[in-house]
């Protein structure tokens, strides 16, 4: 579904991504793990079209989307749940969801998707007219995921979905991600929580200083000594 080849990204003179290549198959969960500042978020932002890569190629469903603006990639079906949730605090829950459904691809089926999102996250339905900024962190994360779903994406990129959430809530969020995947959603997951994301992922990449240093099946990486030492503290 998504193919990234030799992607280079710079912020001024600082190189954030160094010849990164990866592949996300239809219906899979692919995890990208790595320490803070390894370039995980930069990679997502480059794919989404928020940052412009200096070289390399990004293809989605066989179409070259390198350098596309983010409103075009979104309309192609690449959804994003950004880091830190980024909901709109002084809009209501329902208004937040509706802003997500205004892409061309989603506008017509808005009502149906809204029902789906409410079924998936019942607390959002209960709080539909509450201001989003007054909800708990976990509920805001649900809202961020729901808002992304409203755009009818074919692939969702999650950037640190567990960041700053209580452990029980983290569990909820990962349950939602697995559930989405079981329904056929392709997922690209960026996480610092290496143990959980490797368990979830069919395929995983380890990013270090902007470079992919290791790749393989999630479970395989989970048993790798290097990974266990560097990321799991074992």
């Amino acid at each position: 579904m998504l193919e990234v080849c030799d992607l280079d990204l710079y912020y001024g003179d600082a190189q954030a991504l160094d010849r990164v290549s990866l592949k996300v198959d239809d219906g899979s969960i692919v995890a990208i793990v790595g320490a803070n500042g390894a370039g995980k978020s930069s990679l997502i932002r480059a794919i989404a079209g928020i940052e412009k890569p200096r070289s390399g190629q990004i293809c989605f469903r066989g179409q070259d989307i390198t350098g596309w603006e983010s409103y075009r990639t979104c309309d192609l079906g690449i959804g994003q749940v950004a880091e830190g949730r980024q909901i709109f605090p002084s809009l209501t829950v329902q208004e937040n969801l509706e802003t997500g459904a205004m892409l061309h691809r989603a506008r017509a089926s808005r009502r149906r998707i809204l029902t789906d999102v409410f079924t998936m996250f019942p607390p959002l339905a209960e709080r539909r007219s509450q201001l989003a900024g007054t909800m708990s962190g976990g509920e805001q994360q649900m809202l961020a995921i729901g808002r992304c779903l409203m755009g009818r994406p074919e692939m969702i990129m999650f950037d640190e979905p567990s960041l700053g959430l209580a452990p029980t809530v983290v569990h909820e969020v990962f349950r939602a991600i697995r559930e989405l995947n079981e329904k056929g959603m392709t997922i690209l997951l960026v996480e610092q929580n290496v143990a959980v994301s490797l368990k979830l992922a069919s395929q995983a990449y380890v990013l270090e200083n902007g470079k992919i240093v290791m790749e393989g099946r999630g479970e395989t990486l989970l048993t790798d000594d290097g990974i266990r030492r560097s990321y799991l503290g074992l």
Binding site: C74, Q86, E95, G100
Partner: peptide, 23 residues
Amino acid sequence: TRIGYYWQAIREDPEAAQALGIN
């Protein structure tokens, strides 16, 4: 209108608005 929704999204969080696919 859609314009109003988009404006408010941009006002609240320009980055998130961009990530949502708003031009």
